[in-house]
Amino acid sequence: MLIVVCIKQVPDTTQVQIDPVTNTLVREGIPFIVNPYDTHALEESLRLKDRFRCKVAAISMGPPNAEATLKKALALGVDKAILLSDRVFGGADTLATSNVLSAAISKLNTEMDEVGLVLCGKQTIDGDTAQVGPGIASRLGYQQLTLVDRIENLDLSQKRIRVSRKLEGRHEIVEAPLPAMLTVVRELNRPRYPKVPMRLAAADAQVEVWNNQVLKLDEQSIGLKGSPTWVSKIFSPERVVGEILGDGYADPEGTAALLIEKLMAKDMLPI
């Protein structure tokens, strides 16, 4: 069985600013990181690899410099890393992205090994749509298990998986046949730290690059042309400086009491 883990290189959003004129992200000088939710998907795929001795392939769609993200995956122990990179993939929304990723997964399914699981982070921290994972499941006809915080059971002989889904205020235990697509939340695991010998091996390893000559997708279904979503505006919410209450240095207790009073008046304290 092959596990495919989808990862994305994202700008470190705590450091991102928005250009007020063009309404686009200012990316200059902003370091890229692996989408934090994806690191948990990656970790889970590696744990399953350790347990079931299956293979793991990491795929990522992005510009050529996204190779760094895949090298991190190699350093952590994935068997194969593929970068899906082509100018015609650029400008993709979640639909077009899921088309490219699905095509890559299908290709791995036929050429490498039968895909049993696809793991994704629950969403990326730059787009925050949470649509790409479910999009892949729909296009490939895989079972769709989102917001997974624990894999309860994976039975490879029966080809079934049972997971816990972390929903608001409750957990849901669901079971599904394989192949399945899981999107995962942070509570699933604690990602491992790369070992130096693995990092050195990854630095020398080749990340395979698949462009559209390899995937042969209809250009109307990928990139900007295949993207029905149109972003009309990106903006930072305006921050309003609130009222300054009391003097915390001179009278900390009185100021705290003042704050509590205000919050209770606005019904913002659960009593």
């Binding site: 470190d12 705590t14 450091q15 370091p31 990181i33 730290y193 790369p194 070992k195 130096v196």
Partner: peptide, 27 residues
């Protein structure tokens, strides 16, 4: 380096240092 085995609170430290070059991970 060889085993990637250390007290768990160090994971954040190492990642903060590597990603943001300070121990707290502040931008």
């Amino acid at each position: 380096e060889t085993e990637a085995r250390f007290p768990e609170e160090l994971l954040n430290l190492f990642e903060n240092m590597e990603g943001r070059s300070n121990p707290w991970g502040i931008a």
